[in-house]
């Protein structure tokens, strides 16, 4: 499977992973701003955003009508479309591609939903292996506090489809606990770099920039501050 082999394209693929409220999107936004000023050729892509399918998925989610397996395949369609339309062409053209969530999100969430571990890994087998994958690890209570600043947990992110609890807050904790468990298991499987997401935003960002600098330097890209 392509996902398990290093790619030989000129560009660099950097991905961030973690549950909702881990701060990974904030960290990636800060990194992106910095890279846009230093190396310039930067492309950003995020989970469930392809024109082809994301609206269909969002509508179906609102109606709570997706089974774990259709949920999984719909996200794979989104990923496949963005991979071939955005990620691969950008890597061929030498861009640094920043991805907010990648295949590991599917591996964590879908397996936490009861989808077969090997089945979902096979489905995403055509994915490109990232040059760098960071996992922002946050305890489930902090994640819940952060996302509930402005809203209640949503049906699928709380895993309400699994009937773990009638209370969305309780269900969120149980479900995201399972997701964290899956992420933890992937640290070794996929060489994810674990970042302590309870540290200050600034500290995390400085660490993130250090790691990215090393990866880009290894690819022959110099960062001009």
């Amino acid at each position: 499977m392509r996902l398990n082999k290093s790619h030989d394209l000129p560009g660099t693929l950097i991905v961030v992973e973690g549950i909702d409220g881990s701060g990974k999107s904030t960290q990636l936004a800060l990194l992106r701003e910095w890279l846009c000023h230093t190396i310039k050729d930067v492309i950003f892509t995020e989970w469930n955003s392809s024109k082809l399918i994301s609206q269909t998925t969002k509508k179906a989610k609102k109606k709570n009508q997706l089974s774990p397996r259709t949920f999984s395949i719909l996200h794979a369609i989104d990923f496949a479309d963005r991979l071939e339309q955005v990620i691969v062409p950008s890597l061929k053209a030498g861009f640094t591609v920043l991805a907010d969530r990648y295949t590991y999100t599917a591996f964590a969430r879908d397996v936490a939903r009861g989808v077969d571990h090997n089945w979902v890994r096979n489905m995403y087998g055509f994915a490109i292996k990232p040059d760098l994958a960071l996992y922002f690890k946050v305890p489930v209570d902090i994640s819940l506090d952060r996302i509930c600043l402005n809203r209640a947990p949503k049906f699928y992110e709380a895993g309400m489809d699994l009937n773990l609890s009638q209370d969305p807050y309780e269900s969120y904790k149980l479900f995201q606990g399972r997701v964290i468990n899956e992420y933890d298991k992937m640290i070794d499987e996929y060489d994810l770099i674990k970042i302590n997401a309870t540290d200050s935003i600034h500290n995390q960002q400085m660490l993130f920039r250090d790691i990215v600098t090393k990866t880009l330097n290894a690819k022959g890209i110099e960062i001009k501050e």
């Binding site: 399918i53 395949i73 794979a76 369609i77 496949a80 479309d81 071939e84 339309q85 489905m123």
Partner: peptide, 8 residues
């Protein structure tokens, strides 16, 4: 592309 076509 082929994989998107297939997954749809």
């Amino acid at each position: 592309n082929a994989s998107t076509f297939s997954l749809l």
